[in-house]
Every structure is written in structure tokens, then in C-alpha cells.
């Protein structure tokens, strides 16, 4: 399993991998929104939590179709499905690799980009906390969508449409945590709901994804 994780990470960091893609997108959003909206600190501070979370979510979405499609095209997925590792573990590991490459990286750069968005000082801790808690759900839900569309040629559009509604609760509660944190209100309720979404999807969706892949490989 470590071999699969290290292979996926290596593939992501080598030329043509998906590592820079999400980060570059996130950076573009954080740079362009202040230019488009205007430099008033008050306006920016108000929309910062939402924009940062939407940016992170869309950046995550960009690299989803790579999770299984590349392995499907070159035949590795068939071979992984007959390997001694259970397919559920393959899915979980690939989602973990996706999270390390996108979700974790986005979480780490978010405080830097939040400066551009004039996020109030109280929000920084909660921005990092909410992204760290919420992005694993994005990767696991995304892996489920990717598993459903794995055999579909040019399935990117279908994948986005399938996954976006599933992303909505994570987005709402994630942005709510940052908003409340920035205003100095208590954040426990949305934070716990966010953690619940992540825990539930991490526990259940690998099984659903593995079932979807079995159907698609038949």
C-alpha cells in the first residue's frame, strides 16, 4: 500500500503531474478577485471566507479526473483490481494521495493567500483548521465521482456535475467556520458538522467507490 501511495505521489510531482495545477488555480483566484472586486478592505474581508473556500474547492475539482482515469487508460487499474490489495484500500490510498497533493497543499498556502483577501486576523486559524478538516472530504467524494465516471471518455464534465452537489455541504460549513472565526463568534457548530461530513465520507465512500469501479471494469 505504501508502494501505491509513493507511486501516486511520485507521479503527481513529476512533469505532467497534477501538483501545480490546483495550487496555481487557487493563487489565480486569490490574486484576481481583489483586482476584480476592488481594493476596499471591508468588502474583501466580507467575501474572503467564501471566496477562499470556493477557490480551494474548485482547485480540488480540477485534478479529480486524474485519480482513476490515467490508471484506467494505461491498464494499471485492471491490474490493481486483481492485485492482492483490496480495491477499497486502493481507492482510499489514491484519495489520500490526492489529498496530500491538493488538499494539504491548499491548506498550507491558504493563510498566505488570505492576506491578499484581507481576511480579518481572527480568521486565519479557522481558515487553516476548516480546510484541514474539510478537504479530505473533498478528495474522498471526488474519488467517488471519479470512480463512477472511470470508463467514460471525456468524463470531466459529467464528473464535475456529479460531484458539485455533493461538495455543497462541505463548502457551506467550511466557509461558515471561517466567517464566524473572522467575526470572533464561536465556531463549534459548523466545525463539528464539517468534521462529521469528513468522518462519514472517509468511512463510507471508499466502499461505494470500489463497488463503482468493479461495475465499470466489468
Amino acid at each position: 500500500m505504501m508502494a501505491l501511495l509513493s507511486r501516486d505521489l511520485r507521479l503527481a510531482f513529476r512533469a505532467g503531474g497534477g501538483f501545480g495545477l490546483g495550487l496555481a488555480f487557487f493563487l489565480l483566484v486569490a490574486v484576481l478577485v481583489p483586482l476584480g472586486v476592488g481594493p476596499e478592505a471591508q468588502t474583501l474581508a466580507k467575501i474572503a471566507p467564501g471566496i477562499l473556500w470556493v477557490g480551494a474547492l474548485l482547485a480540488c475539482l480540477l485534478s479529480l479526473d486524474r485519480i482513476f482515469a490515467l490508471d484506467f487508460e494505461d491498464g494499471s487499474l485492471d491490474l490493481l483490481a486483481t492485485a492482492p490489495i483490496p480495491l477499497e484500500a486502493v481507492v482510499a490510498i489514491k484519495a489520500l494521495a490526492h489529498w496530500l497533493v491538493t488538499g494539504l497543499a491548499l491548506t498550507l498556502v491558504a493563510p498566505v493567500l488570505a492576506v491578499l483577501m484581507m481576511l480579518p486576523a481572527g480568521g486565519y486559524v479557522w481558515l487553516v483548521a476548516s480546510l484541514a478538516l474539510g478537504t479530505p472530504a473533498l478528495s474522498v467524494i471526488g474519488a467517488f465521482g471519479a470512480a463512477l465516471t472511470v470508463g467514460v471518455k471525456r468524463g470531466g464534465l459529467l464528473l464535475s456535475l456529479l460531484v458539485l452537489p455533493l461538495y455543497v455541504p462541505t463548502l457551506i460549513f467550511g466557509a461558515e467556520v471561517v466567517k464566524r472565526g473572522a467575526m470572533g463568534m464561536e465556531v463549534a457548530t459548523p466545525l463539528l458538522l464539517l468534521a462529521g461530513i469528513t468522518a462519514g465520507s472517509v468511512a463510507l465512500l471508499p466502499f461505494a467507490s470500489a463497488a463503482a469501479i468493479r461495475v465499470n471494469l466489468r
Partner: peptide, 28 residues
């Protein structure tokens, strides 16, 4: 069982050794 067909299951950006080491590790 193991199966080999037209698709070799190779990763273009990995070297020959890395490709084989991956499958060897997967199968223990």
C-alpha cells in the same frame, strides 16, 4: 491469476526499474 493484454499498465514518467518495483511491491 495475472493478466496481460494490449495495455501494459506502465507509467510513462517512471523508469523501467520504478515500474517493475511498483508491481513487485504491490504483489509482495
Amino acid at each position: 491469476l495475472t493478466y496481460a493484454a494490449h495495455a501494459d499498465g506502465l507509467k510513462a514518467v517512471l523508469s523501467v526499474r520504478e515500474n517493475l518495483e511498483f508491481w513487485a511491491a504491490i504483489h509482495g
